[in-house]
Design a protein around this nucleic acid. Sequence first.
DNA 1: TAAAGTGCTGACACCGGTGTCATAATGTAA
DNA 2: TTACATTATGACACCGGTGTCAGCACTTTA
Lengths: 337, 337
Amino acid sequence: MKKVTINSVASHAGVSKKTVSRVLNNEPNVSASTREKVLAVFKELDYTPNPIARGLAQNRSFIIGCLYDNPSKSYITRVQTGALAACKENNYNLLIHPCEFRGEELINNVDQLLQTSRLDGIVLTPPFGDFPELADFLKSKNIPYARVASAVLQDDSISVRSNDEQGAFEITEHLIKLGHKSIAFIKGHPDHSATQQRFKGYRRSLSSHGIEFDERLVEEGNFSYHSGVDSARSILDLSPRPTAVFASNDYMAAAVLKLATQRQLKVPDDISIAGFDNAPIARHIWPGLTTIAQPVEEMTKQAVTQLILHISQPQEQPYQITLESQLITRESTSAVK
Amino acid sequence: MKKVTINSVASHAGVSKKTVSRVLNNEPNVSASTREKVLAVFKELDYTPNPIARGLAQNRSFIIGCLYDNPSKSYITRVQTGALAACKENNYNLLIHPCEFRGEELINNVDQLLQTSRLDGIVLTPPFGDFPELADFLKSKNIPYARVASAVLQDDSISVRSNDEQGAFEITEHLIKLGHKSIAFIKGHPDHSATQQRFKGYRRSLSSHGIEFDERLVEEGNFSYHSGVDSARSILDLSPRPTAVFASNDYMAAAVLKLATQRQLKVPDDISIAGFDNAPIARHIWPGLTTIAQPVEEMTKQAVTQLILHISQPQEQPYQITLESQLITRESTSAVK
DNA sequence: TAAAGTGCTGACACCGGTGTCATAATGTAA
DNA sequence: TTACATTATGACACCGGTGTCAGCACTTTA
């Protein structure tokens, strides 16, 4: 049960540590016969290099940090799933770091994280990809980072997003085509760039159909279910009541549905409801929510893959990509009567 | 911007590395004056020890792994939250490892994980705390582990759980007191020990009221929403239809609710529905689900805290604790008409 | 007063890898 | 055949900590 280290392999194979190291890292200048000999010993002794020792020598940890602060548990797990997939492929590990701080405190908190964990890179998930001070701080510390689902920036950062504006546009189009003209809108958390984007898409669709924008139909939410309840109350109290509600995410949409149902309104007959994100809840409730599906796992996976690539090859150019989202129609929306 | 290491601190303070190390680890045999001098240099240079170097020297990683395989995203994030809280307090980090494997493959997968990550310990969340082969494997590898929400075992392991049997008993009692005599039951995933426990509690309550157990009222689920839909179909097709359904978790209960609503049944007037876990969905739908709340975060936090304690003090005795759960009544259950 | 014990400190090896550089072995051109 | 590249290999320092042990100063005990 002796520990198998590079030294045991070396002496077993009758070569030096360094040669073993070369084989390990696929470095050139190893003769075919030596390489095979060493590889055979790897198998024989069931050797795996110690990532900690490697990390010390290279000043790397092989760990990516994932920063998040999101009321949606399903969003968090989706992000994690994508990040984990990328890490796994590259023999990295993922360290999760929920974080509620903002501003000065946020920087301190992240600084602390970096001090104690020596992360090789950081994925910034919403809303952290949209805090320029954080990006600047990471740049100053020379920590590579990737932004997921954040606003487009004219910089050299890694960024994978989907088109929130277009998604919101399409779902509003869907409602308008069903005959809705009075469509309430619930905004998301102001820290998230998606909030502005979705609002923009909503307004673009309205104006493209010549429907006048009505500020009274807009409520400020924050992506939480609770905020959805508050917004729903205001909206359902309006008179005349809008014939449709488009909430910036599914949790808030679910809140509207719950309140409407409590008030004996029939959805979608009395009021149509649409959400965003295609969270599990969108299909767990009745009627199911019409919503926009975004490839969250895929976005995060691509971002982390690029991040890891960037860590080993820092000379890469910016990688900024926008993935497609998809309209999913369910029972919560129907033609206006 | 030079890196601050133990060497810079040592030379700055005019002492040896080792003395700095002593101060760092609160070891005895350092004079008060020396200690202060070194501490001052810590502040001055803003020094934090490199955990990787430390890990190499002590053959530790300061990382805890969290193994899970659960259809409920909210359960996963709750487990993570608890584990993170414990890690943070002890300067550990958390590495998450979703894992679908069973049997032989599971062992290989975990072996791989240990090889590449050198974890100091592992938290086994449901259902992994109930796989004796896995526990034996970890024991053979000398990896400390803690079990969360798993069955009681007469061994020396760390285990924090809540009383599933009692919770299920109480919720069934609640239904019976409302006058229900025909109560359908949806089982959870057979791998989870909670599945048997919850079933046992259900049966104990029935028999304590002299209600005969009827096998036709029991459906096999697996904790997923989808399995809940299948089970709901069978149950709602029964004739006479049961007046209440108790699903082993909230997702399956939500599925019953959705199907019942789709079929124009009024909940709870036509049929009462109860769940388990107090997942977010239990209060996001209408009517809200009567359910059992378990302190998942607290369980995991305690388990990980004990695990970390055990890592530094391996001579500890077993720590096996059962926490209380709580009945939460919402609108989905009412007196039988 | 001598012998034995205690507290404080640093020199040095070590953890398990990687980077640098010198050197040996082999191949190629003159 | 000699001179010069090129490839293959290993010795050794190094990454930034911790563990072991020896040595010194200072008490305590006989």
